Simulated assay, not measured.
Amino acid sequence: MKKRKIDIAVISDVHLGTHGCHADELIAYLSSIRPTKLILNGDIVDIWQFSKRYFPTSHLRVIKKIISMASNGTEVYYITGNHDETLRKFAGTSVGNFHVMNKLVLELDGRKAWFFHGDVFDVSIQKARILAKLGGYGYDLLILINRFINWCLNKMGREKYSISRRIKNGVKSAVRYINDFERTAADLAIENGYDYVICGHIHQPKKEIYQNKNGKTIYLNSGDWVENLTALEYSFKRWKIYRYNHDKLSPFFADEELKSMNMNELISSIIDLKQEKADTREKDEESIGD
């Protein structure tokens, strides 16, 4: 199946290891593209809520797919978020085409782009981590209940309904928080001379021009793979929001190799990929020594 070639794909807030994660849909999306760069903008693995009792094979396939893309030439940048903050101690680490960092700055066709997750603006996380984690569990439970409701609605031939989106759009404080988040990110980007500022964290896909007395910038948010199933794509000098539920140009499916693998085979293949990289690095070092 022919894959779409794009310069950059950005995904965030996948929350692998939670009931809300749409892993199969994400694998289908990743299998449909061939990006030069893949930017994972935080909260890919939900370490806050990680449980050995719940980590389906489909979630492991996402990890396998990302490693496979890196092995096949895609530069993969893993930007840490609050739910995977444990990885921040590895910031600056690179293994082949896979890089772990807390933020990223790229020059795109003469313009500067600033990538970071966005939890730095969240006072509830910075000041009350326990409450924030409890909120995460509550959100996961809400998504699980919402899935059951949507299953019932689907059986009745009715449209899906998002409880959390209804809450976010109906509670003034939530709307104000999102607006403040976007404005703060845009103001900081303008102050530091960035033409683009690309975030995740708030699960609200968006592309908008922000302007103040000091200049302007384009604010972008990649959304999430829990409710919105969205990504950002950069190609032909422009950004677009990819919406899985609306933008499928053809019925993409996950790689057949990934679909047929069981849990043990997936783990084994990931280990083999790591060993292959280590062997290649060792050969390169030997050739330099000679």
Rank of each mutant, 00 (worst) to 15 (best):
D122W: 12
Y242W: 09
G17M: 00
N41L: 01
L153T: 09
I66E: 00
T93E: 09
H203G: 09
K237E: 05
E227Q: 12
G200E: 08
Y77Q: 05
V105G: 04
N169A: 13
A185H: 10
S68C: 05
I67W: 07
S222N: 12
I178N: 07
I8V: 08
S287W: 07
E286R: 06
P56I: 12
S260T: 12
N154P: 01
T80R: 11
G193R: 03
R183H: 15
E159D: 12
R183F: 14
R129S: 06
V14E: 00
T36D: 08
G170V: 05
P56F: 10
R147P: 00
R88C: 08
D279W: 01
M1I: 05
S51Q: 07
W114N: 14
D247Q: 10
K3M: 04
N179Y: 10
K2M: 06
R165L: 03
Y77G: 06
V62A: 08
H201R: 08
T80Q: 12
H201T: 05
F236A: 15
I66G: 02
R281Y: 01
C199S: 04
S31T: 13
D272C: 08
E282H: 05
I27R: 15
Y78Q: 07
K65Q: 08
K248Q: 14
L141P: 00
K2R: 11
